[in-house]
């Protein structure tokens, strides 16, 4: 009921849950060795930004379009091609449909 066989391997979610549970117990145990010096509302909770004043929380929020910036910049040539492909023009949508039809005609119907 729990073991999923693929013919070349198997998957049992119960084993996975058991491993996760053991890992949590382990982390919780390691956490217990830490020192509880945290004092809310004191200087120690403020971020040290090389002496600069800490900005307001909403100004420090990293926006979604800034995340993975490095990845998108390094792949900019690919993205410029993909953006050109996604014109938003319905005639181009139909063009892609015709192209796929034509390729399949050539491969299955003619060749």
């Amino acid at each position: 009921m729990f073991t999923l066989e693929s013919g070349s391997g198997f998957w049992n979610p119960l084993i996975w849950i058991l491993i996760i549970f053991i890992a949590f117990l382990l982390f919780y145990g390691i956490r217990g060795f830490g020192k509880s010096l945290y004092k809310k509302g004191t200087e120690q909770t403020k971020a040290f930004l090389s002496g600069n004043k800490e900005a307001a929380p909403e100004e420090m929020h990293v926006k979604a379009s800034n995340l993975y910036w490095g990845f998108t910049v390094s792949m900019s040539s690919l993205y410029s091609r993909l953006r050109k492909m996604h014109t938003g023009n319905v005639s181009d949508y139909l063009l892609w449909f015709i192209i796929v039809l034509a390729i399949l005609f050539l491969v299955i119907g003619v060749i």
Partner: peptide, 19 residues
């Protein structure tokens, strides 16, 4: 070919996925 390509497009298969 017609049926596979049309239904593939309706299912959202690239490069006919843009809709």
């Amino acid at each position: 070919i017609l049926l596979v390509v049309v239904l593939g497009m309706k299912a959202g298969l690239a490069p006919m996925h843009m809709w």
